[in-house]
């Protein structure tokens, strides 16, 4: 079944418009709304969790009290994390520029991990 379930007819869905799969929006991508991408510098991060408590999209990934990356599948690029980070370890970069960088990196034979991605240690997005 697709995430949207649109191939289903009225006989195949739960009664009363109920959604029985809690947190199913996890499957819905809002990452493609982004104009700017938060790029996280793992070196500078103090794991203070300020970005985490202010993120509207539950997109700061944390494991055992430490930030481990950004969920780019859902992050909409609002920039709150970068604006609020006391360590200034998140940089908002234009997606189009990053794409250009990546394309250039690929042309230069640098493989999938372009310059920008190497810098942003934790691209753990896309759960």
């Amino acid at each position: 079944m697709s995430a949207s379930g649109k191939e289903k007819g009225w006989k195949d869905v739960p009664m009363g418009g109920l959604i029985l799969e809690a947190g199913s929006s996890d499957k819905y991508e809002t990452g493609d709304w982004r104009t700017y991408r938060p790029v996280w510098d793992q070196e500078k991060c103090r794991h203070c969790m300020i970005c985490w408590i202010y993120c509207p999209d539950s997109s700061i990934l944390v494991h055992e009290g430490k930030m481990v990356g950004i969920d780019y599948k859902h992050c909409k690029g609002c920039g709150i994390c970068a604006h609020e980070c006391p360590a200034k370890c998140i940089d908002m970069r234009l997606e189009t520029e990053l794409e250009a960088d990546r394309a250039e990196g690929a042309r230069a034979g640098a493989g999938a991990g372009g310059a920008c991605c190497a810098k942003s240690g934790g691209e753990a997005g896309g759960k």
Partner: peptide
């Protein structure tokens, strides 16, 4: 304590359609 809070389950998950930067989901 923020670090303790991160250990709690995220009860509102991502993939909602609030505008970027919306305060309501925060």
């Amino acid at each position: 304590n923020l670090r303790d809070l991160t250990k709690k389950e995220e009860l509102l998950c991502g993939g909602h359609r609030a505008c970027a930067g919306c305060a309501a989901p925060i």
